[in-house]
């Protein structure tokens, strides 16, 4: 597990059934591109988050394939439909095999 990786997610606490809501996510990660060299001139190996997914009650909202050109501390904003009350699940996949998860519950008015 890469050091100091911390996810942040912003989801409204409630919505009307069938509404579309905006979700913002950010995870602290260096996103080492594999293009940089260290002071000895050696390539610093690539180490990035290569995939991000958001699901709601087991159904997919968005699935992002990520390349090294995504900035340090990757940020994503997108919209999700909320058919019923439930739980969003956010998953980030690291090159090193680590998986970081966060969940957020939402109620329906």
């Amino acid at each position: 597990m890469a050091k100091g990786v911390k996810p942040r997610v912003k989801v409204p606490k409630s919505a009307s059934a069938g509404d579309s809501i905006t979700i913002k996510t950010l995870i602290s990660h260096k996103m080492e591109s594999g293009q940089r060299k260290d002071s000895d001139g050696k390539i610093i190996p690539r180490s990035i988050i290569n995939r991000f997914t958001c699901d709601f009650n087991g159904e997919n909202v968005i699935d992002v394939t990520i390349e090294p050109a995504v900035s340090t501390n990757p940020y994503f904003q997108f919209d999700a439909k909320v058919p019923e009350a439930g739980e969003f699940k956010f998953t980030w996949y690291d090159d090193d095999g680590s998986v970081y998860e966060d969940t957020k519950a939402i109620t329906v008015e």
């Binding site: 909202v61 390349e67 994503f76 997108f78 919209d79």
Partner: peptide
Amino acid sequence: AVATFKFGPLAGSREASTRIRL
């Protein structure tokens, strides 16, 4: 290549944003 966004059945729109390196 930078990133590919695949919209799932519960995507609320076809909008997305991110921050990239140029």
